[in-house]
């Protein structure tokens, strides 16, 4: 089976029903996507598949085909952060940070198609991602900052 992740093609021999999350983490060593719940309750495993946010714990690898997968590692790097990541740094969103890969991937996919979100839009787009530390006030602020930054770019 072939998977294209962050622009690199990988060949792997796994069950078709293995969730993408575990293929990424345990087979390919790509650990930005996190395991939190396994049932799409937390969103910590969010990746982009052809640009759309997807909970990788729900996505059987055998159903991905040749779609392009992007993980947080492919969104930006510490040296060259994506606007959403930069906004997360500027607002010091993270506490434990474990959910934030997923939050950032969700926000990045959302802003790609909704460059000028209202408060209500953000509340609808970002409420499927769980943060046990309670960084939600900062997530709201960071999404707005990122939107403004992307608009200006």
């Amino acid at each position: 089976m072939e998977l294209s992740v962050n622009g690199t093609s990988y060949s792997l021999d796994v069950e078709e029903d293995m969730p993408l999350l575990w293929a990424l983490r345990d087979e390919l060593g790509i650990t930005g996507p996190k395991y939190g719940c396994g049932i799409a309750q937390c969103g910590a495993c969010t990746v982009h598949i052809d640009g759309q946010a997807v909970r990788s714990c729900q996505m059987p690898v055998g159903d991905i085909g040749n779609a392009e997968i992007t993980t947080i590692e492919g969104l930006g790097t510490p040296e060259a952060m994506h606007a959403v990541q930069q906004a997360w740094v500027d607002h010091q969103v993270a506490q434990c940070g474990y959910c934030q890969s997923g939050q950032i991937m969700q926000a990045a996919a959302f802003l790609e198609t909704h460059p000028e979100p209202s408060d209500e839009d953000i509340d609808r787009a970002m409420s499927s991602n769980l943060c046990r530390c309670g960084t939600y006030p900062r997530i709201r602020a960071a999404v707005k900052t990122a939107a403004a930054k992307l608009q200006g770019a």
């Binding site: 650990t31 930005g32 947080i72 590692e73 790097t77 952060m81 934030q100 950032i104």
Partner: peptide
Amino acid sequence: DIVAKSTGT
């Protein structure tokens, strides 16, 4: 830790 936690690293 904020940059590392915002970049999945």
